[in-house]
Amino acid sequence: MIDVAVAGTDIAFVDDPERRARILRRFRLGDGIFRSITLIAACAVLVLLTGVIVTLVYGSLPAWRAYGWEFIVSLRWNPVTENFGALPAIYGTLLTSFIAMLIGVPISLGIAFFLTEICPNRLRRSIGIAVELLAGIPSIIYGIWGLFVFAPWFQAHLQPFLIDNFANVPVLNQLFAGPPYGVGLLTAGLILSIMVLPFITSITREVFETVPPVLKEAAYGIGCTRWEVMRRVVLPYSRVGVIGAIMLGLGRALGETMAVTFVIGNAHRIVPSILAPGTTISATIANEFTEAVGELYTASMVALGLILFFITFVVLVIARLMLMRIAQKEGK
């Protein structure tokens, strides 16, 4: 009789078989419609992603036609002569993300280790929540802080120190060469590393918590130290998930726009020094897209976007596959 309640009909009417059949028909029809609507919505998600790829490919066609594969390896970026190449931007994207991971990953893993094994129980929850809240801070905040606070300090203190002290060390003097600009590839990498910290930490912590307590207790029971439990039990068990978390962080760093655009310096060139201004794919698009004149300029930037999408797509697919494996292990 629930149909009556839902249809809001007086119960006396339902004894009428015709009326009853009508209500049942409506039920069946409603189910068909609702099912189709949800199915269409689910397909819309697929269509969107396909649409993004198709649109980017289509929008960048003029650039591919004009330069071919050379676009990817060309060093030029000259809006006046309409000569465009993506290599400096790709280089900057990969280098800043590499720096970010180099610094961010060990610290994130350290924090996650601290939170799961070392931290007193009372603090654990509050620090954990704090980290998760920090993961939601918009990247433009990191950008503005980087531009006004970090870059000037970096220029005044750390950069001269690096330049002076490594002036006679063979490889490092190339890496830390040139005048201290403040903004540059290293600055962007450092800001990114701070930005990915809460992100990687919160996922790693979740992954660490999938380790069954019994395993850890058994290890502690036979006299393992905290570090040994971490190194020999927690890490091997959750390795795949940790790699997934790192890849997810990398995906974020690669595609990050605002935290980088403020402090990268926007220079299309490749020099050995990581203190020098450079550019990334996202910073190039953010800085130049609205001012781009001409079909080829715009198309070149869409092509840059396509390259960025391709790189992050690969990284994210790997990340998700890894995280899916740890979820399966957990039996979810």
Partner: peptide, 9 residues
């Protein structure tokens, strides 16, 4: 994938 796709794209 969409969840973490670069927003500039």
């Amino acid at each position: 994938i969409l969840l973490s796709a670069p927003s500039i794209v």
